[in-house]
Design a protein around this nucleic acid. Sequence first.
DNA 1: CGGTGCGTTGAACGCATTCAATTGTGGTGG
DNA 2: CCACCACAATTGAATGCGTTCAACGCACCG
Lengths: 222, 222
Amino acid sequence: MFAHVKASPTYPPGILGGLTASHVTFSTSEFNYRKGTEIYGEKEPAEYVYQVVSGAVRSYKLLSDGRRQIGAFHLVGDIFGLENDDAHRFTAEAIMDTTVRLVRRLSLERVAHSDPVLARNLLVMTTSNLQHAEDHMLLLGRKTALERVAAFLLEMDRRLTGVDVVALPMCRRDIADYLGLTLETVSRALSKLHAYGALNFLGSNQREIMLVDRDQLARLDT
Amino acid sequence: MFAHVKASPTYPPGILGGLTASHVTFSTSEFNYRKGTEIYGEKEPAEYVYQVVSGAVRSYKLLSDGRRQIGAFHLVGDIFGLENDDAHRFTAEAIMDTTVRLVRRLSLERVAHSDPVLARNLLVMTTSNLQHAEDHMLLLGRKTALERVAAFLLEMDRRLTGVDVVALPMCRRDIADYLGLTLETVSRALSKLHAYGALNFLGSNQREIMLVDRDQLARLDT
DNA sequence: CGGTGCGTTGAACGCATTCAATTGTGGTGG
DNA sequence: CCACCACAATTGAATGCGTTCAACGCACCG
């Protein structure tokens, strides 16, 4: 395959930074994925747990006719692919050229069995995923297109490190499949927010967005 | 009265059936809620974990203008209200007259801290909630009204003990708020499925539904 | 009985989708 | 260097699915 491995140098505290165990260290390695390539597929055995070192990842489910629902975007620092079953429940793909660090799931499980700290961390991470999914159900079930896009921008603003500008790594179609809309509707909503004076476009591509009026966006988010 | 739920004669092993600890027993008590009453509210401190003994419960979030998204229905045997944060993330209400068993959350946490079996069970339960939410995101984001209602019927068919008939404890509005639709759309979809020969209505109220053609429903569910 | 809650059905509307055309950018090769 | 193509994004016009508004039927209950 295309991906090549690096030796694991020194990294934030803990194995996967957040997946901390008491007195153990795990062996990790790194992998590179080119834009658009699959990291793992839905229902494949969950052999590894991943952390984004650089780049961005989308996790999605497909219906038989190709309709796609992206459940989450994984940004730098995020851990993903953590399953307690044997199989992945999403397909994960690199949105752009991406480096991930990975650790064998079984080595985690083995340690967690006797290490309350790690076990606790696994629960906290799962809970945080659950919380995100619960909030997203409300968005998908009950919010309008404009509200969804506003919520999305605020989420990205919070999660992306960028100081003033939100530099989106994903295309309009990805945003649409995350928000349960079409790419045209996302585009129209962004244009409307631009007309409202809530945001400005910066780059040559339209993925760098300056949030001018966060209060207005927050009001739309309800 | 209205729909009657089968009393569950034997209770699963463990304190809250599924929330099993190694060598400990927790003190539990029971509580009755009349139809429509709140069990706990969103953002209230999460003092107890609950299990449905009889009846049914809805968990939902509200937007400021009253739009409601039901995240889950809790049926006989189900555990709900399990949070790892201090606060509940949903409001829980009795759909019909309901009896719940409850145990203090802190007593669980205390034991889980040193009991890997219980800790593991907490993780498994949280994961199962997460899995449900992930599937529901796909439904809310990408499925048509007919597909949603078909999926709902199959879910209830699987989870309700009833042999041949699905005896829904909830009204059309609850179903709608669970599926991200209006009650009229739910009603129309059910009528259409009836016309298709996929189901029959039984009781005087329209909540007892016999699934005649599960294959057809499953095909709609995609 | 009238009142209320629940469910169904019809008709009109509207938001988001679908279909389509256009623009701009980056990459590739002649 | 520019012609060419693929891809991303915007915008307009028409369509349609689900919503909104409204009327009605029915069971239950005081």
